[in-house]
Design a binder for these strands. Structure first.
Length: 300
DNA sequence: GTGGAGGCAAGGGAGCCTGT
DNA sequence: ACAGGCTCCCTTGCCTCCAC
C-alpha cells in the first residue's frame, strides 16, 4: 500500500496504482467476491466499478477501461488468499444448482420419468434439474444462491455431511495419505469418527501404508490401546458440537438429542472394552476390510 | 457361488487455464 | 476481461472383473 513504491521503470507502460480509497471499496466487496461465481462476480464487479470510479483519479475512457481490468485483477488475485496458486483439492464450492439438486433430489428423479439408474434416467437427469430450477421463483433461486454461499463458506447441513462421510471421505483420506507419502515421505494412519444420517457415531481406523510402499500399521501393530482415549474424546466432542450448533432448538428436540447421546455413549462404552467398531464397512475396500478383520480376529 | 470394487452410461453446468 | 477448450462434477443402478 506504499504509494512511494510505484515503479519508476518505463512510466508510459506502468499503470497508475490504485488509490487507498479505491482499495477500500475493493476490500469491502472482497468477501462477497470470494464466495461468488461466474455471473454473480460480474454483477459485483459492476457495483465495484460504480463505487470505485468515484474514488479514482480523473481519467479518460481508455484509462478507465484499464482501471476496470485492474479492479478485476485485484479481486481475482485475492479470490482465495490461503491457497492462491491452487484451490485445495479437498475444498468444495457449492452452487445454487448443486444445492437444488440436493434439496429436490426426489422431485428431480421423479421428473426424469425413468427408472433410477438406467440410461434413460441419466439422459434426462440434467433436463429434470433444469425443469425444477425453471419452476422456482426468483426469490427461491436467490435463496439457493445464499444457501450455496453459506454451505461453501461454513458447512453444509449434517445430512449432507453424513453422505459425504460415507461416499467421499474414504477416497479423500486415501488421497491425503498418498500425497503426504509422495510429497513429504510422511506416513499416516487415520483414526476417524463421524456421524451417520441416523445420528450414530462411527469410529474407524484406516491405513493405506501397505499400498504406499510400506507395511500396514493396523495389520502389524496393536493399535487397540488408542481406542479408549479416542472414544472418550469422540464422546465428548460430538455431544458438545451438537449443543453448540443451534441455539434455537426446542425442548422436545433437546430431549431426543439426549436420548441419542445415551445411545452413543453406550456404543462407545462397548467399544472401550476392546471391540473394534467397524460399522462403516462400506467405505472400505477389500484389502482394508481383510486387514481390519485380521486385526480384529488377532485381538480376540 | 458370492460379494465387493470400480467403470460406465448422457449431458448440462461450472471452474480452470491459456491466449489474446 | 473474456472467449474457447478442457476437465470435472453430478445423478443411480447395471455389469464386469476379481478374490476368495
Amino acid at each position: 500500500m506504499d504509494r512511494s513504491n510505484s515503479s519508476v521503470h518505463s512510466p508510459e507502460k506502468t499503470k497508475q496504482k490504485l488509490t487507498e480509497e479505491e482499495l477500500v471499496v475493493l476490500q469491502s466487496h472482497l468477501e462477497e467476491w470470494k464466495e461468488a461465481t461466474g455471473k454473480d462476480r460480474k454483477t459485483i464487479l459492476r457495483v465495484v466499478i460504480k463505487e470505485a470510479k468515484m474514488q479514482a483519479p480523473k481519467m479518460d475512457a481508455r484509462l478507465l477501461k484499464t482501471r476496470k481490468s485492474m479492479y478485476w485483477d485485484w479481486l481475482y488475485n485475492r479470490r482465495a488468499e490461503k491457497t492462491l496458486k491452487k484451490q485445495s483439492k479437498f475444498s468444495k464450492k457449492w452452487t445454487a444448482r448443486l444445492v437444488i439438486e440436493h434439496q429436490y433430489k426426489k422431485e428431480i428423479l421423479e421428473k426424469t420419468g425413468a427408472r433410477p439408474g438406467g440410461k434413460e434416467m441419466i439422459k434426462y437427469y440434467q433436463g429434470a434439474v433444469n425443469a425444477i430450477m425453471g419452476g422456482l421463483s426468483e426469490e427461491q433461486l436467490e435463496e439457493s444462491n445464499k444457501t450455496a454461499i453459506e454451505w461453501s463458506s461454513r458447512a453444509p447441513p449434517t445430512d449432507v455431511q453424513a453422505e459425504f462421510a460415507q461416499k467421499k471421505a474414504p477416497g479423500m483420506m486415501k488421497d491425503l495419505a498418498t500425497q503426504l507419502w509422495r510429497q513429504a515421505g510422511m506416513r499416516i494412519f487415520i483414526l476417524s469418527a463421524w456421524k451417520t444420517e441416523e445420528g450414530e457415531v462411527r469410529i474407524n481406523g484406516i491405513d493405506f501404508n501397505d499400498k504406499l510402499e510400506g507395511s500396514s500399521f493396523t495389520d502389524t501393530k496393536d493399535w487397540k490401546p488408542m481406542l479408549p482415549e479416542w472414544n472418550a474424546y469422540v464422546g465428548e466432542e460430538f455431544v458438545d458440537r451438537n449443543d453448540d450448533e443451534d441455539g434455537n432448538e426446542d425442548r422436545e428436540e433437546k430431549e431426543n438429542r439426549n436420548q441419542r447421546r445415551k445411545k452413543e455413549e453406550f456404543t462407545l462404552e462397548v467399544d472401550t472394552y476392546g471391540l473394534l467398531v467397524i460399522l462403516d464397512m462400506k467405505s472400505l475396500n477389500l484389502e482394508d476390510k481383510k486387514s481390519l478383520i485380521r486385526t480384529f480376529l488377532t485381538k480376540h
